[in-house]
Design a protein around this nucleic acid. Structure first.
Lengths: 228, 228
DNA sequence: TTACAATATATTATCCAAAATATAAGGCAA
DNA sequence: TTGCCTTATATTTTGGATAATATATTGTAA
């Protein structure tokens, strides 16, 4: 408590935790490219943490399927493919539709408020993007995440939420790799989803969500940037 | 990617990998008790690996929710509760029914053979257990795992299979904690499930699986060994 | 020229020790 | 006595160094 370490204690977080988030974000954002070998010495220089700490971080990411650990040959960023995208999209949809149905059935007023407020913030970013301000893409990804999570946040199932979170992030990674916003149709779908959720129309909401995810899937594949 | 279950030990694998499986198995088997603090020095002595390697292992287990990392206060075994069991049972059921439907729709002859053969092995163990040979409980857990995985092994969705694997293992942990075999009813359900799967009756199979999991859930809770 | 083997290099897996931090215990003042 | 501050201990977190392993390279024989 005498002299707090300059890097750590100011935020009460360990340097390992910070590096973990940075590396994870760099994979999702595509700065660390699919299939790329993750050499420990290089990472050590880039993120400023020691080798054992890096191994700890990469092991956690491997459990989330963001990196693969190849036996005794080190780590590399998980590669992407059309099949991989379809796979993860299906998983996301399965978890999200289930959680959405539960949320609509049991959500309270606070939950509705979360949905409304997160959609409001999402819409602001979407409007900017539609107007051509491409700098907001990362902000949009963040708000998209917040909104979808808000809609299922009343499902009262921590395990389901946790599984959905990592599935969603892996799905998002594909969007970040092609870095192409779908525009007004996606924004309209979000608004409709918000209304259906508030109206407690579970079946219509699920139907919309399904086509929403599938449209996103096709949009990403349509850019031709994802290998077969 | 193979989904090995938790007892298998291979020879030219890293010491870290072996220790990982041992610790994971000890948590599932209840040797490391829910809520127990995992002191690094103690683990170091028990499993014969150094501290940084242990941190790597515990981090991976934390990603699977078998242990929790409490800020800067080390690790402890994830505690159990009735709500936790219901939660994880629901997740298992959601993933398994979905994968089962897909498998039944697209499975080939080899898949049917896997189902039949794994059920045969399961039945042998179940018969011994029903006859009172309690020493076979761990073997039963292993075969139960193999059988259920065989039924969904044709779903062609790696992400779904991976998610199901960890959910299933967490569900299994509760069974191991109460260490009480449900007996003939469970064995009968397995046999029926095998027949329905081979007959490609998806809806009936899913209905049976659902009641199978729910019966297991109630059986575990009925022992009174799981805190509220 | 090609295939194989042996060496050399690069990279990883592991361990030990030091620094930082939290927890417990003890002493002092109110 | 009780509460709080200080000191001491236990535990965790991190960095650096060493041993083990895989990959690349080179040379030699068929």
């Amino acid at each position: 408590m005498k002299h707090k370490s300059f890097f750590i204690a100011s935020e009460n977080e360990t340097v390992g935790e910070v590096a973990f988030r940075n590396i994870r974000a760099d994979i999702i954002r595509g700065k660390l490219k699919p299939g790329q070998k993750l050499k420990l010495e290089k990472l050590k220089a880039d993120y400023g943490v020691a080798v054992p700490t890096l191994r700890e971080i990469l092991s956690r990411l491997a459990a989330e399927e963001f990196v693969v650990a190849e036996g005794q040959r080190g780590f590399e960023v998980t590669s992407v493919s059309e099949a991989g995208l379809r796979d993860i999209a299906a998983l996301r949809l399965l978890l999200e539709t289930h959680a959405l149905r539960q949320s609509i059935a049991t959500g309270d007023l606070q939950w509705e408020a979360r949905v409304v407020s997160s959609h409001y913030m999402l819409k602001v970013v979407e409007t900017k993007l539609i107007d051509g301000d491409i700098s907001q893409v990362e902000q949009w990804v963040q708000q998209d995440w917040e909104f979808h999570h808000a809609t299922i946040s009343a499902c009262a199932s921590p395990a389901m939420m946790a599984a959905h979170s990592t599935a969603f992030d892996r799905f998002l990674r594909y969007h970040m790799l092609v870095l192409d916003f779908r525009g007004k149709p996606a924004a309209d779908e979000h608004a409709q989803l918000r209304d259906l959720v508030i109206a407690r129309d579970a079946e219509a909401a699920i139907k919309l969500l399904t086509s929403h995810v599938e449209s996103g899937l096709n949009h990403v594949l349509g850019t031709g940037k994802i290998p077969a």
